[in-house]
Each structure stands twice: as C-alpha cells, then as structure tokens.
C-alpha cells in the first residue's frame, strides 16, 4: 500500500518526488463520489462491450461469462454506460444511505 498523506516524511520521498509505483491510483476509492450506481440486466445484455469501452473511469470489466459489471470501488456513477447501452440493459439506481 502507498503511504498515506499524513505519514510521508521528507526523507521518504523519492528523488525529485518521483512516483515509482505505476498506477497506484487504483488504491484510491473514487467510488465514494457516487450517488447512483449502474445495475445490469444480463437478460438484456448482448455482451457488446459498449459500456466497457465508454467508461471514463475504467470501472467496468468483463466477467468470465462474457457479461460486464461495474467495479463499485471506482464507479463514480456518471451514467454513461446506461445511456450508451444499445439494448438499455443498464439502469442507474439511487445509492441508499
């Protein structure tokens, strides 16, 4: 895990404050921003991958069965996937408190 913001002493920074763990932003839970979340109806899904390719947050992945599901750790709930789905298989539903 990357050291959190409060922990880093100046001596622990890499030279030039270079970041040496590629892609460690995946530790950051951007899913906390979400107020609505996508729910996929696999009966309607034609497994085209439209939702996957248009997700700005790389938060949709293909399951072993070839369906697609959102990774709620990252999904910000923008609704692009539901809006672009050619078979309207995705519905955005309110997050419950």
């Amino acid at each position: 895990m990357t050291k959190t913001r409060q922990d880093l002493a100046w001596q622990e920074l890499e030279i030039g404050a270079t970041l040496i763990t590629p892609g460690n932003s995946c530790e950051y839970k951007s899913g906390d921003w979400r107020s609505i979340r996508p729910v996929v109806d696999n009966k309607k899904c034609v497994r085209c991958g439209t939702c996957y390719i248009f997700c700005p947050d790389a938060a949709i992945h293909e399951t072993e069965e070839g369906f697609f599901e959102a990774d709620l750790y990252y999904c910000k709930g923008c609704g692009i996937c539901a809006n672009e789905c050619p078979t309207q298989a995705i519905e955005m539903v309110e997050e419950e408190e």
Partner: peptide, 18 residues
C-alpha cells in the same frame, strides 16, 4: 489492458479522461 489506471480524480462523465 488499461495503462491509465482507475482511481483518477476526473469529474463524473469526463470524456477527456476517456
């Protein structure tokens, strides 16, 4: 493969991040 990892702080629906 994604070489631009998730967890970035772009606004919701940012087509530039896409």
């Amino acid at each position: 493969k994604d070489y631009f990892a998730p967890g970035h702080r772009a606004c919701q629906g940012c087509a530039e991040a896409l």
